[in-house]
C-alpha cells in the first residue's frame, strides 16, 4: 500500500513474537483515509495481536515501529468494555467523557443500534448481542464527533450480531470510510460492501 505521507497509521518492519514463536515478520502497512482493511488469517495467526498493537495496547514481543497520526483511535475488542452494573446510557456517558465525545448524541446512537427502549436497563439484563450493540454505539458516537481523521480498529465486530445489525454496521463502516476515516477489522464473515476492500493476510498460525 502506498501514500505513506497521508497515512492515518504507518507500520514499518513490524515483527511480532509470542511464546518464542514468530507470528509476523517485517510487515509494512499504511492505512490511509478512505481505507477499509480486512485482516485475515487462521486462528492463532496474530490478527488480534496485530490489531491490539495498532491500538497501542500490545507492545510485548513487538519490533519495528508503528506511527499513528490519526485524530482519534477507536478500538473495540473481544471484551466489550461494558459495565454490567451500569445502564447503556451510563456506559456510553463515560465513554463520551473519556474520548471527548459530545454526550448529546447518546440517544441517537442508542437508537441507531436499536436499543432506544433499553437505554436505562442495567446491562446485566441485556442479551449478549444487545451488549455488543451497546459497544457498537461507540462507533456512532465517534462518527458524530466529526473527527476528520479517525481510525476504527474492530476485532470481530459481527460476533453475536443479528443479520439486520450486520447490515447496519457495514453501512456505518462504509460511511466512516467515505467520509475520510479508515476502518481496520478482523472478521470471518464476508462483507457485503461496495467499497474496495484491502486485505492483509497473515500466515499460518501453527
Amino acid at each position: 500500500m502506498t501514500d505513506a505521507a497521508d497515512a492515518l497509521i504507518a507500520v514499518r518492519g513490524l515483527g511480532l513474537e509470542r511464546g518464542g514463536k514468530a507470528l509476523l515478520a517485517d510487515l509494512d502497512l499504511d492505512i490511509a483515509a478512505g481505507h477499509l482493511v480486512l485482516i485475515e488469517g487462521p486462528n492463532g495467526s496474530g490478527k488480534t495481536t496485530l490489531l491490539r498493537s495498532l491500538a497501542g495496547l500490545s507492545r510485548l514481543g513487538l519490533s519495528g515501529r508503528i506511527e499513528a497520526r490519526c485524530d482519534e483511535l477507536l478500538y473495540l475488542g473481544h471484551r466489550a468494555g461494558i459495565k454490567q452494573l451500569l445502564t447503556p446510557r451510563e456506559n456510553l456517558a463515560w465513554a463520551c467523557r473519556s474520548q471527548g465525545w459530545d454526550p448529546v448524541h447518546i440517544d441517537s446512537a442508542l437508537d441507531r443500534v436499536g436499543l432506544s427502549g433499553r437505554a436505562d436497563l442495567l446491562c446485566q439484563h441485556l442479551s449478549a448481542g444487545q451488549q455488543r450493540r451497546v459497544n457498537l454505539a461507540r462507533l456512532h458516537l465517534s462518527f458524530d464527533a466529526r473527527h476528520k481523521r479517525s481510525l476504527w480498529l474492530l476485532d470481530e465486530p459481527f460476533t453475536a450480531i443479528d443479520r439486520g445489525g450486520v447490515a447496519a454496521l457495514t453501512d456505518t463502516m462504509a460511511q466512516q470510510v467515505r467520509r475520510g476515516g479508515a476502518v481496520v477489522l478482523t472478521s470471518h464473515q464476508d462483507l457485503p460492501l461496495d467499497i474496495p476492500l484491502r486485505r492483509v493476510v497473515l500466515g499460518g498460525g501453527r
Binding site: 485524530d71 459495565k83 452494573l85 451500569l86 451510563e90 456517558a93 463515560w94 467523557r97 473519556s98 474520548q99 471527548g100 465525545w101 459530545d102 442495567l122 464527533a145 466529526r146 473527527h147 476528520k148
Partner: peptide
C-alpha cells in the same frame, strides 16, 4: 463541533461518579 481536547475535569468527575455508582450497586 467537539473537535477540541476532551475536558479533563469532566472526565475525572465522571470516572469518580462511575466508580461510586458501581460500588453503590454492588454494596
Amino acid at each position: 463541533m467537539s473537535n477540541q481536547p476532551p475536558a479533563l475535569g469532566a472526565f475525572l468527575g465522571a470516572s469518580l461518579r462511575r466508580q461510586l455508582l458501581l460500588a453503590y450497586r454492588r454494596p
